[in-house]
Design a protein around this nucleic acid. Structure first.
Lengths: 385, 385
DNA sequence: CCATTAAACTCGTACTCCGAGCATAAGGTA
DNA sequence: TACCTTATGCTCGGAGTACGAGTTTAATGG
């Protein structure tokens, strides 16, 4: 009844957010980070313990002084189910407030028919609800394609067109949080990966085409309808080339397996990922030339994005990593030459993503945990304990 | 002594921020917007009145019920000096918490020598401090060029290279807040102009080259060192063209007076702005063709940025407005064709900026007021009353 | 002139966070 | 082993905020 009070759980929420972003952080460290006095820290953590949101375990003492405690997710605290829908398979995990996975699963699609696939995801939600009851408070879902208000448009698999993803949690009353897979892998990098701590980070991932996101303090720039980050459809390329997206000269057309095939005058590959890897294994002059053309296009575009956004760090995922490695000197030179002169003295580092295939799942977890650590979500949870 | 308390002035700061963003807002409206009870609103506004931060005047009653009051800047409250440094002149104004200008000035440079120009700005600060004493709490400064940590790099005027702008307030103890002119005019649009209320806004301004910014909820995306928004140096153009910035194929080379001159095989114009306007007045076939080429380049690049960032709205400033008007049908068609198909059903509106030449000054005011309405600044102010 | 309406004001209360002082659990040292 | 040092946790009283409930006030409308 007092839960509608302004800021009742505000400090508690801040503490929980810290715990979820920095698992295994000590109570003393949290207090210092938030500028809390030790008395307040005592009080607020006690409150969080009481409502089963955190558990405290003795911390191994490192220095002199009274040992502090580690803040952990409470063993009967809230959990989120995170799902990563991919072209040929889907992965799931149950994640606690401190970001650790309680269980994990990976299943191949037996069909890609939309109703069937979404049905499986829905069953996973029901199963989690069966197992965890009302401890299940959120579902985080990563999908491979363009999103607009929880609808999937332009997925990389043509079977998934104009899909309403709300059906995944329909009837369960659990909050659904959806994100693009490339965006979420960027979130994972910015939170716990190669871009950790960066104020402005640019994450790009190449599979079939390029996906990515710009992140400000770990938060992706989402756009008006959540469909931002389509850097592949900026006209960095040859204006005479028509892209499937409807525009011309898209960067996408220059940087993946289909571009390699065009340069090599091969037919459009069925599986651009496998095709790219096959070309990367070749050492003949024509293959090397084709790879160099693609690497040049990637690095030049990347430099343009760096000029536009001035990131602290750029992280690369998917095929961008082996492609860069195949012609590293060329990549680095092209990137540097594409930067404005004044940026060249301290160019943003271009790093391989730390999470790679786990990225979308980790990012979905971050998304779900961000929801669970809002003041509202905590107040609601506390009201039931 | 109690001012170090957590959140002592938090609600007060939120109220003041509302007042500065929505001048002439009523007390009742503020309370509703922040979810405050009327008792809290009474208390907090009383506190703000006591320390001379707001004044209340009776609001004209519109409906039944006891009339509320308008929240205004207090006549002896804090002020900021805002400066807009331009190529050939500089403007200044003194602004109060509710965003109204107390005085305004516009002076031509008699020389562009850096020390002299910065000296004049410094004198303006001293004069304001003379007149307003410790009521002067911040200086907002808009500059035409790339910024990095309060230093001006790559200004459009070659005389201003590697300028340390901190000299403008040196010795005065007043907080200096610097912004790029295009960025700040974007801020002005997002706060009180054509992009008001937009969650994601893209603002672009063409003078000599293109400047701009991406804004999230009225806040510009600044980048690692404050040098973001250089959209003119993304490689949307012809890779064979070398840009002064050091890179190749920059969009900048395709969209302004210098591009027109190249298409018309004229020499590089001294004053690209005047040259562009002269070409726009011509009606001969070659001039029209040149304009059409430039308009196409602008619209196509803009579409790419819209694909990448999914803005709610795009605002145009400077020469982009007459250029678009000169070939509106072509502009709109090219823009639409450059969008990804799924974006075409509801493309972001492309609007002329509402503030135009006042933009940088208005944006600098927003920047300065944002600083004055932080909790820290308010607590510091209150401690002296 | 009175009912209605919206908002301001008053007052007591719940709650948060703090500072000061004390207690405690480790490492370090003689 | 006893004592010092150090970092942290815990307890308690106090300051201060925002709230709810109830009351008052100033407008409109019939």
């Amino acid at each position: 009844m007092t839960s509608s009070r302004r800021g009742q759980w505000q400090t508690a929420a801040e503490i929980l957010a810290r715990v979820s972003r920095e698992p295994g952080i000590t109570r003393a460290a949290v207090a210092q980070a938030l500028g809390l006095s030790s008395s307040s820290a005592t009080e607020v953590t006690a409150k969080l313990r009481e409502v089963q949101l955190v558990a405290e375990v003795p911390a191994p003492s490192r220095r002199r002084g009274r040992p502090t405690t580690l803040l952990r997710a409470h063993p009967s605290g809230p959990v989120a189910l995170v799902l990563d829908l991919r072209q040929s398979n889907w992965r799931s995990a149950v994640v606690t407030l401190d970001g650790s996975f309680l269980s994990q699963d990976d299943r191949r699609h037996r069909t890609r028919r939309a109703e069937v696939v979404l049905g499986h995801l829905h069953s996973a939600v029901l199963a989690a609800q069966d197992q965890y009851g009302d401890r299940l408070r959120a579902v985080g879902l990563a999908v491979p394609g363009t999103l607009r208000e929880n609808h999937l448009l332009q997925a990389s698999a043509p079977e998934w067109f104009e899909l309403d993803l709300n059906t995944v949690t329909a009837g369960t009353g659990v909050q659904l949080l959806v994100g693009n897979d490339a965006t979420l892998s960027g979130v994972a990098e910015a939170r716990t990966g190669a871009a950790a701590g960066a104020g402005t980070a640019l994450h790009l991932i190449i599979e079939a085409g390029i996906g990515g996101t710009l992140l400000i303090d770990g938060v992706p720039v989402q756009g008006a309808s959540g469909a931002a980050g389509e850097f592949g459809h900026t006209p960095f390329g040859d204006r005479s080339q028509q892209c499937l997206c409807g525009a011309r000269g898209c960067w996408n057309l220059e940087i993946d397996g289909r571009a390699l095939a065009r340069h090599l005058q091969d037919p459009d590959p069925d599986d651009p990922h496998a095709y790219t890897q096959a070309i990367l294994r070749r050492t003949d002059r024509t293959a090397v030339r084709a790879v160099e053309q693609v690497v040049t296009a990637i690095a030049a575009g990347l430099a343009g994005l760096a000029n536009a956004h001035d990131p602290d760090v750029i992280t690369l995922g998917g095929l961008a990593v082996p492609l860069r490695a195949a012609a590293e000197e060329l990549f680095d030179r092209t990137f540097l030459e594409g930067l404005m002169t004044f940026r060249r003295t301290a160019p943003p580092p271009v790093l391989a993503a730390a999470h790679q295939t786990d990225g979308p799942l980790r990012g979905a977890a971050a998304l779900a945990l961000d929801h669970l650590t809002t003041e509202d979500a905590i107040a609601t949870w506390a009201a039931t304990r």
